[in-house]
């Protein structure tokens, strides 16, 4: 299965950290950073996000490519919010823009980047199967974790099917446009994707049953809290404590 996951280039320090700690750290960090809005706290958050990506060994170019959709939205906010928010205005060149809007846009941009960088570093580089197993270990309802594991398994199957079908469409000269024909073609494409995907996945399920699959996965990876987890946990707690201190005192 082809994975959309980024390849790490540098030393993958974070990859050796227990996946359960990484999930807990990502959740805790996201919630805390989402709640704060003071510049100092957000600055620490952004630094921590950059550190997470660095420790995961991701190349800067790869990180920028991954964050492109987020940055597009942030750019929109930075351009529009200074004009729409109310309050005192300051002059930038010939324009009078809302000081409050400008601050708000900057805070959101920093916050969004901090959280997404941390998410990318902590979870984006984790094998999805490990993610599922770690969630099972964290007592997520087992049906939900199984659903995640099967979805990951079938993603590749359906993506291949999608590529095959769109290649076939392109060979026949299909060009999407805002018209009825495109809607109908896409509808048939989705129908075909579901029908074929269903058949293929049923065969996978049958093959798994042949090999003794009884509806649940046995957890073979037992993660252990190892030596590297101690500094990781300490750093996470330290960052979160620093953010809480800077925000709420």
């Amino acid at each position: 299965m082809t994975s959309p996951q980024p390849r790490a280039a540098g030393p993958k320090t974070l990859a050796r950290v227990d996946p359960r700690s990484r999930i807990l750290a990502a959740v805790g960090f996201s919630v805390i950073v989402a709640l704060c809005h003071r510049p100092a706290a957000l600055g620490v958050g952004l630094a921590a996000g950059v550190a997470a990506v660095g420790l995961a060994g991701l190349r800067p170019g790869e990180v920028l490519r991954r964050l492109a959709p987020l940055e597009l939205l942030m750019l929109l906010l930075v351009v529009v919010l200074p004009w729409t928010a109310s309050g005192a205005t300051i002059a930038i060149g010939p324009f009078d823009v809302s000081q409050h809007g400008l601050a708000l846009a900057a805070a959101i941009a920093v916050k969004g980047n901090a959280i997404m960088l941390a998410l990318l570093g902590l979870l984006g580089t984790m094998d999805e199967i490990r993610l599922g197993h770690a969630l099972l270990h964290l007592r997520v309802p087992d049906k939900l974790a199984h659903l995640l594991l099967f979805t990951v398994r079938y993603l590749g199957v359906l993506r291949d099917e999608h590529c095959r079908l769109t290649d076939a469409m392109r060979v026949r000269g299909f060009r999407p446009g805002p018209n009825r024909h495109t809607c109908q073609t896409y509808g048939y494409l989705v129908g075909m994707l579901l029908a074929r995907g269903f058949d293929r996945t049923e065969r996978i399920a049958a093959a798994m049953k042949c090999r003794g699959f009884r509806g649940r996965f046995y957890l073979l990876d037992h993660f252990v809290f190892s030596r590297i987890d101690v500094p990781f946990a300490a750093a996470t707690v330290g960052v979160i404590a620093a953010i809480v201190f800077l925000e709420w005192t």
Binding site: P141, K143, L144, H162
Partner: peptide, 29 residues
Amino acid sequence: LRRLDHEQIPRVAVFSAAFFVVSLIHFPI
């Protein structure tokens, strides 16, 4: 989840994955 049994999970996963793949279909306007 309560309405699903373990046998049905793989089938729901097909639709989950399909939803993900459908979001890759872009419609130019």
